[in-house]
Design a protein around this nucleic acid. Structure first.
Lengths: 154, 154
DNA sequence: TATTGTTATACTCTATAACTATA
DNA sequence: TATAGTTATAGAGTATAACAATA
């Protein structure tokens, strides 16, 4: 038991450092500064899930609602998302991607993930499988309850 | 070939989102606001590697030198690191942890990693092994490539 | 002239608290 | 009164460019 606890603590430590450093590296890989990594992530989620309210999107991205408001304001300014009123509830807003966003996503994601894709290509297929499972595990760590039916989350 | 490329692109996408979200979550888990996550990470690296120059530390943490200067200034202000002159090269500085930092690291890391450790504990030992390997793989992704040309970053 | 570190400055990301509009 | 979203504000984190000191 103590053994497991110690191992877990060491894992938490190593995983934390690795995640911090990798996220810094990914953020710094901005070839096109017109759309930031945070904005791209929001658009990716919108594409995967379809139209969402700002609150839902904030929850999925693990940010507070005001943070998402800012991201969406910038994206709307650039014609990448569209805000529509909810049909029955006047308080809510439905955010969806514009056609321009769909195109931008493909191109931008390609460029932005070039560095990472390049590195991943150098790994063995087995190592890539490891990372694939790890990505799912990291997402699972973020889930508050292991029972929220999320469509499109495997 | 195309299959592998597509898979790698999908992996890059998922891994990027997972890393971004997890790093946000980790940053928000600050119980003691006196030392930030970035500062803790720098101290952890100093403990692991021993005394380093600011430039070396910046390279390990994947930040630019001025960013590290700022982190170190704060840590020195709080008596957590010590700056000493290099013996032979007057341009360089040697940064080392103070005894206070050693103590602070143990306590603070424990508290700060509490959330993550707790989540990790809920996983199966096999899943933790996956993440352990994945943490090493993510660090390996950040290592400058041994043997192949630099793919034009930085 | 090249290297190491620092200072100056600015921008991104994110949060909390307060406000508005609707239910 | 409760909820969804926004505005206002603040602070952490990081970068680039310019500078100083030393080699």
């Amino acid at each position: 038991m103590a053994r497991t606890t110690l191992d877990t603590a060491a894992l938490a430590h190593d995983l934390r450092l690795a995640v911090m450093r990798l996220s810094r590296q990914l953020r710094s890989q901005r070839t096109d500064p017109s759309v930031t990594l945070t904005q791209l992530a929001a658009m990716s989620t919108l594409r995967r899930h379809g139209p969402l309210t700002p609150g839902e999107l904030a929850a999925l991205e693990r940010v507070q609602p005001p943070s998402m408001t800012r991201v969406l304001a910038t994206l709307e300014e650039r014609g990448l998302v569209h805000r529509a009123k909810h049909e029955t509830d006047g308080r809510q807003v439905i955010v969806s991607l514009t056609p321009a966003a769909e195109a931008a996503l493909d191109e931008d994601a390609k460029a932005r993930e070039a560095w990472l894709s390049c590195r991943l290509h150098e790994l063995s297929p087995a190592d890539r499988d490891e990372l694939r499972r790890a990505a799912r595990l990291m997402e699972a760590l973020l889930e508050p309850e292991p029972g929220r039916g999320e469509a499109g989350n495997r």
